[in-house]
């Protein structure tokens, strides 16, 4: 067994039978279309069809779809053997876990602000909310409503 062969060609021909050109063109177009979709969620939100949270959710779904397209086709994972799972799944799980564990402490940090810190915290630029201390205690889920209020003002 020649080392050279082993190194460069031996295992590379799993998907080399025919060109995937048309497939790749399709994927590229799909990606562009999905980018447009991200935009349209923004449009839907601005026209009060969906909430801000929903629009965020949809955008992330679209992003995940795009990411999958890139990984599966452009990065050739579709044609790889089982090692792909060993590598990709732990990395994704771990990265999600890290972010999830940050939420109770850092993501919820406004819940345990001291008075002094509230005084220095960034104020929502809304003249009608006089008592800023109360607004801080609300969860960020209501932000979309706040923004809508502003828009309807």
């Amino acid at each position: 067994m020649d080392h050279e062969t082993h190194d460069t060609e031996h295992h590379e021909e799993h998907h080399g039978e025919h060109s995937h050109l048309r497939l790749f063109i399709g994927v590229a177009i799909a990606l562009a279309v999905l980018t447009g979709l991200s935009f349209s969620t923004e449009f839907l939100f601005e026209n009060n069809i969906i909430s801000k949270g929903m629009s965020w959710f949809l955008m992330m779904v679209v992003s995940c779809a795009k990411a999958l397209l890139v990984i599966v086709y452009f990065m050739h994972l579709k044609w790889e053997t089982n090692w792909k799972w060993v590598l990709t799944i732990p990395a994704s799980v771990m990265s999600l876990f890290l972010v999830l564990m940050l939420i109770p402490d850092v993501g919820n940090r406004t819940n345990h602000y001291t008075r002094e810190r509230l005084d220095h915290a960034a104020l929502p630029t809304k003249p009608e909310s006089d008592d800023h201390a109360t607004t801080h205690d609300e969860s960020h889920g209501t932000e979309s409503d706040d923004l809508e209020d502003d828009a309807n003002h």
Binding site: R109, L123, P124, K126, T135, H140, D146
Partner: peptide, 16 residues
């Protein structure tokens, strides 16, 4: 990105 997400959504309401 995790840092961004927690800092962004943990910011005082309506300020980002």
């Amino acid at each position: 990105i995790g840092t961004y997400i927690v800092l962004r959504f943990g910011a005082p309401v309506g300020t980002w």
